[in-house]
């Protein structure tokens, strides 16, 4: 940020109780582009998104990025309208710096940089995983939870220790959300595939045995997926979806349970897009109740990729002294959560 552009508060004191900071966050790591506007009091003023849905086959990063580029300006405008603000009211801009798909990340970073330079406000590059956790903590009010983060690109058990979020359990191969999508696609279901798989699974009757692979805190889903794909056409799709979700969710619940025992934490936070699926919540609820622990689930709007989580985490970064120079806003496709020093907790 250029010198001399010291940021002052926007002056919207009358509406937001005075002295508050307004952050606009842009999320775009996979196929959802989101823009959120949040105050430092944790009020979410806007959270809008658009989804790139591929016409055929899987998610193509370049096509998604193209879609982002076409939509980002109008989505930012839409968020401002929703929040009833003008661009000048924004105090900081934040964006998802990674991990994610390179072409998508770059579009988002570019948009954030132009806002920062154009409006003369600080820019903060935020870790996507940290953002999922922080919006979850904000909304569920959990203090120090063990985190189960399950989405299209991530499957991790995360704990907070020594000023960092640390991954203590993880998939050794594919992310679960990706596997569920793949199954839905191969079955010819409609996008969003995960919800379609869930719908079919609810009508499942017969449990089909599929590979269940958990080693301590490590999970593996690729064998499960391969085996499920081989069964397409040979068993009822309803039974296949049911068995797939039962098996994979039991694996997640097992590592979450082991994680609770290992860390001694008394709260569990479920976040990430897969957290929107009912059966997973049900299993985790059953498990934590046996441990006398508490389960917090980020509601769907905030558990899928969204802009509000980036905006809120941008505030946390900024208030604890982190803002980035433009040259520090290079995207990081493989941005590990442990790299972030958490100065706000």
């Amino acid at each position: 940020m250029p010198a001399g552009n010291a940021v002052t508060h926007n002056g919207r004191g009358s509406k937001f109780g005075g002295g508050c900071l307004i952050s606009l966050g842009i999320e775009g790591t996979a196929y959802k582009l989101g823009v959120g506007i949040v105050t430092d009091k944790g009020e979410i003023l806007a959270n809008v998104s658009r989804v790139f849905s591929p016409k055929k086959g899987g998610l193509k990063p370049r096509e998604a990025a193209q879609y982002y580029a076409e939509n980002i300006s109008s989505l930012i405008r839409e968020s401002l309208e929703k929040a009833n603000l003008s661009a000048r009211d924004i105090d900081i801009v934040s964006f998802s710096q990674g991990p994610g798909m390179g072409p998508c990340l770059r579009v988002v970073a570019t948009a954030a940089r132009s806002l920062s330079l154009g409006l003369g406000i600080p820019i903060v590059g935020v870790n996507h995983g940290v953002a999922h956790i922080e919006i979850g903590r904000l909304i569920t009010k959990l203090e120090d939870p063990l985190v189960l983060f399950v989405s299209g690109g991530n499957t991790q058990v995360i704990t907070f220790q020594d000023r960092r979020y640390r991954v203590i359990g993880e998939t050794m191969d594919m992310a679960l959300g990706n596997c569920i999508d793949r199954l839905g696609r191969e079955l010819g279901l409609e996008f969003p595939w995960a919800l379609s798989v869930q719908e079919l699974a609810k009508r499942g009757e017969k449990f089909i045995e599929l590979p269940y692979i958990v080693k301590g805190m490590e999970l593996s889903f690729s064998g499960l997926l391969t085996s499920a794909l081989e069964k397409i056409g040979k068993v009822r799709p309803e039974d296949l979806c049911y068995s797939f979700l039962e098996t994979s969710f039991a694996m997640l619940t097992e590592v979450a349970e082991r994680g609770l025992t290992l860390t001694g934490k008394e709260e569990l936070l479920l976040c990430g897009g897969v957290g929107a699926l009912d059966r997973l919540k049900e299993m985790l609820k059953e498990m934590v109740s046996e441990h006398g622990a508490k389960l917090g689930v980020t509601p769907p709007e905030y558990s899928v990729d969204n802009g509000a989580m980036i905006a809120w985490t941008g505030i946390l970064y900024y208030k604890s002294g982190t803002k980035h120079k433009i040259e520090e806003t290079v995207v990081k496709q493989r941005f590990r959560i442990e790299e972030v020093e958490v100065n706000w907790r």
């Binding site: 045995e209 039962e246 039991a250 985790l284 046996e290």
Partner: peptide, 13 residues
């Protein structure tokens, strides 16, 4: 026994 998972899977594990 883990009640959260289906019986058949639970017994197998």
């Amino acid at each position: 026994e883990k009640k959260y998972r289906v019986k058949q899977l639970d017994r197998k594990i």
